[in-house]
Simulated scan of single mutants.
Amino acid sequence: MPDSQQPSPPRLDWRSLSGQAGLDERELRAACRRRRYRRGDTVFHEGDPAGPFHLLDIGRVAVRLTTLLGDVSTIDILQPGDTFGEQTLIHGAGDRSATVVALDRVETLTLDAATFDELGARNPAVQRFLLMVLSNRLRATSHQLLEARFLSAEQRLAHCLSRLAHMFADESTDVIPLTQTDIASMTGVTRSTVNRLLHQAAADGTIEIARGRLRVLDAARLHHRARTI
């Protein structure tokens, strides 16, 4: 069972992973095409034909899936240093497995399968880099499954809010641009439970609740709660 007093393990940045794989970041960047998105833009939709692999360089994105009941569920928030769309480098043709939406100004470095193969033919470190990206993804997913299995609703929510507060800490207003429904789907907690727990946190001055977003008022208390709840 994971220790609830331990923070979630940090995801490894693709820039550090490239170095660990022996791949020069400058070579990787030179092989990529930069793409830019405005807040609210959809990078790609679930079910779209497979496209390039994305290295998130600037901004944050939400990853969303359609449930069996037809609802749209936010399953993760990614920040600079994260990656998405790597399945296209493995399977080639196919469909996107999720929808990715820009939460603010976003820039990604993209690498299509053909360019990846050409780069890999010149430099074996490219294949090691992909393996490390996939290993990093598996590690994060395994931790999420452990949290869902062993932590209480209060603990999962505290960990989620602490991570989001850290992720959006560079914003001058400390605003987390997510709805309570987003947070409920990310934590596997019911919407009503999230509403109750968030209002408790608002009552003690930890957060401020607004329509479609949260504002962190006391990040230190939030991080402490995630470690000790």
Rank of each mutant, 00 (worst) to 15 (best):
residue 191 R to E: 09
residue 177 P to A: 07
residue 207 I to P: 02
residue 223 H to T: 13
residue 156 R to L: 00
residue 157 L to Y: 03
residue 211 R to T: 14
residue 142 S to A: 15
residue 190 T to R: 11
residue 150 F to I: 01
residue 205 G to C: 05
residue 147 E to F: 02
residue 144 Q to N: 12
residue 201 A to Q: 15
residue 211 R to M: 10
residue 172 S to N: 13
residue 166 H to K: 14
residue 171 E to W: 10
residue 184 A to V: 00
residue 159 H to M: 01
residue 174 D to F: 11
residue 179 T to Y: 06
residue 180 Q to C: 04
residue 181 T to R: 15
residue 152 S to T: 12
residue 166 H to F: 12
residue 220 A to V: 06
residue 140 A to W: 05
residue 158 A to F: 03
residue 174 D to I: 01
residue 209 I to K: 09
residue 177 P to D: 07
residue 148 A to H: 13
residue 147 E to V: 01
residue 187 T to Y: 01
residue 178 L to K: 05
residue 214 L to C: 03
residue 185 S to C: 10
residue 186 M to V: 00
residue 185 S to I: 05
residue 217 L to I: 09
residue 172 S to G: 13
residue 214 L to R: 00
residue 224 H to M: 08
residue 218 D to S: 08
residue 194 V to E: 04
residue 172 S to T: 12
residue 152 S to V: 02
residue 188 G to S: 05
residue 156 R to P: 04
residue 182 D to F: 04
residue 145 L to P: 02
residue 205 G to Q: 05
residue 214 L to M: 01
residue 185 S to F: 11
residue 163 R to W: 11
residue 149 R to D: 12
residue 200 Q to E: 15
residue 168 F to C: 02
residue 162 S to L: 02
residue 197 L to M: 10
residue 210 A to R: 11
residue 207 I to A: 03
residue 145 L to F: 12
residue 182 D to V: 01
residue 176 I to L: 04
residue 171 E to K: 13
residue 214 L to D: 06
residue 204 D to F: 01
residue 216 V to D: 06
residue 224 H to N: 11
residue 141 T to L: 12
residue 193 T to C: 07
residue 188 G to Y: 06
residue 145 L to I: 10
residue 193 T to V: 07
residue 145 L to E: 13
residue 144 Q to W: 08
residue 221 R to E: 15
residue 227 R to S: 15
residue 216 V to H: 01
residue 148 A to R: 13
residue 202 A to D: 08
